[in-house]
Design a protein around this nucleic acid. Structure first.
Length: 640
DNA sequence: GAGTTTAGGATTTATCTGTG
DNA sequence: CACAGATAAATCCTAAACTC
């Protein structure tokens, strides 16, 4: 059913309300069994009523009932819960610290606690280990009146601004806490951090705690900023003037609603533009990698590599490359990747790097448009459809070179099952034609709004153009045309991502608006397209592997079979942790997928594509990124 | 007593409805 | 038709309860 559609009908609404009342009246509603039993019961009852009146109920009725009960109970619970909301905590709208009588006691009777703690520490230095016991003792010994006072104060402190002296006392810990937190974050993520904390000190002066991870040089080179109250506006102005080449008029900081200064959102870019002087190429925004072009990624990698060479923050790719990889069929692709980061000369060999990437991603052809020899610096034009259009097999070979995407290769197999016949009606993109002698796709493909765009292609694909009217696979010519269109689109997306490998790439391709994630998207839409022919594809795959095995020559030139087979190999290589499971000469035991997933969630890995086939076809870079992301996320969660 | 789970209030999201 | 407010469903979040 559609989300947010009403499913509660009048005929059984009362049943729900009664059930909820009954539920709220029971004493042991914390008991999960009781609750799920009730929900099952109510769902059955409602199902019966609805059936009686021939009304529709949602498929997941029990879940809906469960949510409904939750929502209804939320508004009708009888137990008074301590009311507390952001709106109540005047003064500090973001602080949700709850004061209890005991916590209040720690402040109101600090002297008693101090004495008691000394006593428990055998009158020597106050032992922090005795604090808990001390507090319990002192709190228990309070008179009824004092307890009452504590309780009232707790309510007051929860609802009104804290008394100044308490605020000052607490604020003393801010610098340490912020510093500890940022040190931890810096340690775990390698990112640089800078923090300001604004508060009123004992004298009522507004002041700032400040911290930066090393190398940031925001304060470090101005020792006078390390002591005493500074005006952050002045600090910022000085920093800005000294670090940006052009004075940009935005020297002052904006303030938030409460008058606290906010660092500008582009503070990281400011850092980058500062480095521009020595890195004229790195004028790229750092963003989510699937939205970046390869040259931007390269620029960043080069930049990090340079830092590493200067013994600054090193670039570490999470990677199992330390372990030896004896599997001869995959000469340690993970290692090749790692060496890219570690040993790559930063200027001259972009070309071979690109090829490494292409090999690793396993998405691109070996035998078509890319020079095999790594030292070969010559760039080539991609072959045109026309050049291959003479014979069926010529066209097949051409199609096979367009992409190594797994779904595409499956689609390509499907052509063997097609029979002769005519083309179907429909709107294939104009550029998808065997008569085309253009090496690159036209500008129109790269214009998101044009009728020949990628989305137009996707739309056409969604009409299931490989199915004829009789629910059978369409004619050979039709299937071939569909594959040509999809293949050219794959190649078009690939070239816009890695234009360096090709000669005379038009400008509009380099400036393509499509993020590389579109490549996956396209693959996904093929998956839908061929979903109905899974059996056929499987049969063809089996047939292919048989014919291949019967041939003694292992270097068969059929790209389709190669592509499919290699998918298994790429797998999680290069990802820490799978070395143990990979046996020498190792058959095809499936790598474990993304490591470091909490054990409670491991069973979900495959379902969400972090293990198994989707994960393995993702390529080393994405896997490394996934791992890094998980670690970062875990670190963030742990550090609250 | 540290860690985990749960209840239920708070909030968000998407849709519906009324108004001019 | 645009818009705002109301509403239902879904999700988020935290204190309290529970577990080992």
């Amino acid at each position: 059913m559609a989300p947010y559609a009403r499913w509660v009908k009048e005929s059984f609404k009362q049943t729900l309300i009664d059930a909820c009342k009954e539920y709220l009246d029971t004493n042991n509603r914390g008991n999960e069994k009781t609750r799920s039993k009730l929900i099952t019961h109510v769902a059955d009852e409602i199902g019966a009523i609805a059936k009686d009146k021939t009304e529709d109920v949602p498929d997941n009725l029990e879940k809906c009932v469960w949510i409904w009960l939750g929502n209804y109970a939320a508004g009708h619970a009888k137990d008074a819960r301590p009311s507390k909301s952001k709106a109540d905590t005047h003064g500090h709208p973001t602080s949700l610290k709850t004061w209890t009588a005991k916590l209040v006691c720690t402040h109101l009777f600090a002297d008693r606690i101090s004495n008691e703690q000394k006593r428990l520490s055998d009158d020597r230095e106050k032992d922090i280990g005795k604090y808990r016991a001390t507090l319990s003792t002192v709190f228990e010994e309070l008179s009824d009146e004092e307890v009452k006072h504590c309780e009232e104060t707790a309510v007051k402190w929860n609802t009104e601004p804290l008394p100044d002296e308490i605020q000052h006392k607490l604020s003393k810990t801010i610098p340490t806490e912020v510093t500890d937190f940022l040190k931890f974050m810096n340690h775990r993520t390698g990112a640089s951090f800078i923090a300001f904390a604004t508060y009123n000190d004992e004298d009522g002066q507004q002041t700032y705690a400040r911290y930066e991870t090393d190398k940031l040089q925001f304060f470090a080179f101005k020792p006078e900023y390390w002591k005493g109250p500074n005006n952050i506006q002045d600090l910022w102005k000085t920093f800005n003037l000294e670090h940006t080449e052009e004075a940009d008029g935005e020297e002052t900081l904006e303030s938030d609603e409460d008058g606290y200064p906010i660092l500008p959102g582009n503070v990281l870019e400011l850092r980058l533009s500062r480095q521009k002087a020595s890195h004229p190429d790195s004028d790229h925004k750092l963003q989510e990698p699937s939205y970046m072009k390869s040259d931007a990624v390269d620029a960043w990698l080069k930049h990090w590599l340079k830092l590493q060479k200067r013994n600054k923050r090193p670039l570490i790719l999470k990677d199992g490359s330390d372990e030896a990889r004896p599997n001869p069929t995959t000469p340690s692709k993970g290692k090749a990747k790692a060496s890219k980061g570690k040993a790559k000369a930063s200027t001259d060999d972009d070309k071979s790097d690109e090829e490494e990437v292409q090999e690793e991603r396993n998405d691109q052809s070996d035998n078509g448009d890319i020079p095999e020899d790594k030292n070969d610096q010559s760039k080539v034009l991609p072959p045109t459809p026309l050049s291959a259009s003479e014979t069926r097999m010529g066209r097949r070979a051409f199609l096979a070179t367009l992409s190594k995407d797994k779904n595409y290769q499956k689609l390509l197999l499907l052509i063997c099952a097609a029979n002769d016949g005519d083309l179907l009606e429909g709107n294939p993109p104009a550029w998808a034609s065997w008569k085309s002698d253009a090496p690159f796709l036209p500008n129109a493909f790269y214009k998101t709004k044009s009728p020949s765009s990628l989305s137009a292609l996707l739309k056409w694909i969604s009409t299931d153009p490989i199915m004829a009217d009789n629910n059978m696979l369409a004619s050979y010519n039709q299937v071939e045309l569909v594959i040509l269109a999809i293949g050219l689109a794959f190649r078009g997306l690939w070239i816009s991502q890695f234009p360096e490998s090709y000669a005379d790439v038009p400008h509009y391709i380099i400036n393509s608006p499509y993020p590389f994630s579109q490549y996956e998207q396209l693959s996904h839409s093929i998956h839908d397209l061929i979903a109905g022919y899974a059996d056929v594809v499987q049969e063809l795959e089996v047939a292919y592997s048989k014919t291949k095995r019967s041939k003694p020559t292992a270097n068969a030139t059929n790209a389709a079979a190669d592509g499919v087979e290699n998918e298994d190999e790429v797998g999680g290589s290069g990802i820490k942790g799978d070395a143990a499971t990979k046996k020498p000469g190792g058959g095809h035991r499936r790598p474990p997928g993304l490591t470091g997933v909490p054990t409670t969630l491991q069973h979900l890995r495959e379902e969400v594509g972090l293990a198994g086939e989707p994960w393995e076809t993702m390529g080393v870079e994405w896997q490394a990124l996934g791992l890094l992301w998980l670690h970062t996320d875990t670190a963030l969660i742990r550090s609250a």
